[in-house]
Amino acid sequence: MADGDRAALSQRLRAAVHYTVGCLCQEVGEDKGLEFSKQTIAAIAETTFRQCENFAADLALFAKHGKRTTVNTDDVKLLARRSKALLNFITEKCNELASSNAEQKEKRAVPTGKGKKKSDRHLEPMVTESEDVAID
């Protein structure tokens, strides 16, 4: 990827993260009865964006350590190892996801699943194994 492209992409990603962080901060603010200053939201957004670099590097290494090229949920669990509460929460989410996937598989045991939706996915090759996932 050219440097210019990467810079532009980084800008867009930053903006998207900033927007989501803004929404989340608003919710937390309403909950706690105070407001977040614009600088605080920007700082949290920037921190999140940078933190993603650590997350991505760790996930890639965890997958590599497991002799895989695809990051799976186990790698994410490993990412959450530092805090017990977080690990419990993530493990719970993983179990929920696994059981809902199993349910969906049972529902449509017809062999039409694989590669069906690939055509309308005009973006970069993002998600593999995405055929089990409901798109919201």
């Binding site: 997350f55 996930l59 090229t69 695809t70 990051v71 949920t73 993530i90 993983c94 998600v127 996932v133």
Partner: peptide, 11 residues
């Protein structure tokens, strides 16, 4: 390196 759909949801 790739990411599975489930891993993206959990991330």
């Amino acid at each position: 390196t790739k990411v599975s759909g489930d891993a993206v949801i959990i991330m």
